[in-house]
Design a protein around this nucleic acid. Structure first.
Lengths: 343, 343
DNA sequence: CTGTTAGCGCCTTCAA
DNA sequence: TTGAAGGCGCTAACAG
């Protein structure tokens, strides 16, 4: 398991190790023959430069820290895929961390990642409290917030990327309106979440413009899970209702609605249209075919990496320039929304 | 962005930096007062040891490389979650890499990870060709193969973890048999995959024992996707068939079957039972509720980490002891399998 | 063109 | 109990 170092190569080649170093970095100040010869020896001996030693000098590791609440969650795994793939294309590796939705854990992770000298950190969908708790690190390490940038006040000391949630809510609602639904139920609004805030505001604006009714069912829990969607929908179905469509605040909530509707004997979309938000892959599964608002995860991911590298690559003594990038949502029509028939 | 080092602390405290080092490592050979004082200064100045420098000396980075084909695939994202969480609990970080099912990419990744001096690598579900191509690294870095250990011949130079796929096939088939299905279609068998080989063999054995019929529909493509499941099922439904149940080689294939059945107007489970294999989270979604064979991903993941750390932590000069761990599958009953009614 | 030297941040002898 | 010195693998001046 002993790894071969630059010294071993130097000894074999009968040159100083500085020469080896030069040969490997394709320095111009070295004869072509020695370079070729040394490279050959390296290949033969299976030499591989020790990135750590190099990083110690350059102060760059080419690794990015990625903190997601839970990588097994479809949304984050799709985001992580795009981030990793794109970062690698740009020469960076990704250190993956699950925060388990825990503020203390996020703080620990920042410390850990800092100890590992990561060049930057992408923090996904933090709660307000979490964000406040790690703000102290922003001056130490370039950071980009993923998913929270229609925040007020705008977080300082870091860049941020997110969907235009307001536009998303507006677009979704407009779509329903266009289908003839004039009484819609917005299900799963979570107070204390600026993301939800914006989505709902957008939907409200569209409803107001059209003079349509928008009933809101709030999610009292802290998480937009299928279970909470199910519970919310159950109580919705248990009482008489006038809405002809449900706009769920997230896809996972919509899944719960699907389940509850099934059990209550209401057919989707024949009896009730259903629109989600996120466009997670499972929305495209057979028998689900959920119409939804697309977060365009790949765009978000690449923008996050771009902003981070922009922060990292800026000339050493220039003051950091933080920016935010807002991504436009898109509508994905599948099978759960149909025109409202007025008989 | 300048980070505070041990020297800065030494200067502030007015001691040599060896003393600071000792204080931080809780060395006994130092007075309690100096230690307290130094620790206080470190906390105040926001000092964080540079793991890189430490690793350069210790030859240990406490990071593990994880190579999955595609983290956005539900199966791998669930596995990655368990691996990362468990590894962290045991003091290790995870560097995530997507191989995109590409042999060359896997080779590059090994090189990359080796350069970063990872302490070990977990390689998920490699194809035969890929495995051969990276076998050369096994003597350089502790490696565990995830998902391929009922291989023949057993790969040498590394440890391995996988499900007892033979038992899984057997268990699933026995379940169907127990439900009264005596004519089953095994859909999606992929030649050249030892995993599929074993699953099918297990199912065959159970069928033979019971004297039941087992028709095999082979998947000619290289991937078990929903699309290929859909295509396979379509052709199945387009001809008359005698089977009363389908045993899909993977959950994703089963999803395609669901879709095709829907379109062909065959009701599941009333007209045809359907059993999957993997237990991906989407199998539990409303309207899907797929009965399936559970791979017990968490057990697999933790076993993989255990075996890897066992390899890493072994006393320096002891010869490596490779092992393999076979996990028992479990049956998950949901809604897609019902007893066969003989009228 | 090539070798020598110092040093990145830290730990670990060896002395004092 | 504390300080001085060497070295982990590599790069970057500075000589030659």
């Amino acid at each position: 398991m002993k790894r071969v170092t630059i010294k071993d190569i130097a000894k074999i080649a009968g040159v100083s190790y500085a020469t080896v170093s030069r040969a490997l970095s394709d320095s111009p100040e070295i004869s072509k023959e020695t370079r070729e010869r040394i490279k050959e020896i390296c290949a033969r001996e299976g030499y591989r430069p020790n990135t750590l030693a190099r990083s110690l000098i350059s102060n760059r590791t080419n690794v990015l820290g990625l903190i997601v609440p839970d990588i097994s969650n479809a949304f984050y795994s799709e985001v992580a895929f795009s981030i990793e793939t794109y970062a690698r294309k740009r020469g960076y590796n990704v250190m993956l961390c699950n925060s388990l939705y825990d503020t203390q854990q996020v703080d620990d992770l920042f410390n850990f990642l800092l100890g590992h000298q990561v060049d930057g950190i992408i923090l996904c969908n933090s709660r307000d409290r979490t964000r406040d708790s790690v703000a102290k690190y922003f001056q130490t390490v370039p950071t980009v917030l993923f998913g929270d940038c229609n925040l007020d006040p705008v977080p300082s000391g870091c860049s941020a990327v997110c969907l235009d949630n307001g536009l998303g809510g507006y677009t979704g609602m407009r779509y329903l309106l266009g289908l003839g639904h004039t009484d819609v139920c917005y299900l799963g609004y979570r107070a204390n979440s600026s993301t939800h805030e914006h989505r709902l505001a957008g939907a409200r604006r569209a409803a107001a413009e059209a003079g349509a009714a928008l009933h809101v069912i709030e999610n009292p829990t802290d998480f937009s899970t299928t279970e909470s969607g199910y519970a919310l929908a159950q109580s919705f179905f248990s009482a008489p209702y006038s809405s002809t469509a449900i706009f769920a605040a997230t896809d996972s909530l919509a899944l719960g609605v699907l389940q509850a509707a099934d059990e209550a004997g209401v057919r989707i979309p024949e009896d009730l249209s259903l629109l989600g938000f996120d466009n997670c892959f499972y929305g495209d599964l057979p028998k689900i075919k959920l119409s939804t608002v697309d977060q365009c995860k790949q765009k978000l991911a690449e923008a996050a990496v771009d902003l981070l590298l922009q922060l990292i690559d800026r000339p050493a003594e220039e003051p950091a320039e933080f920016s935010r990038r807002i991504i436009r949502p898109a509508l994905v029509e599948r099978a759960t929304c149909i025109p409202h028939r007025t008989e």
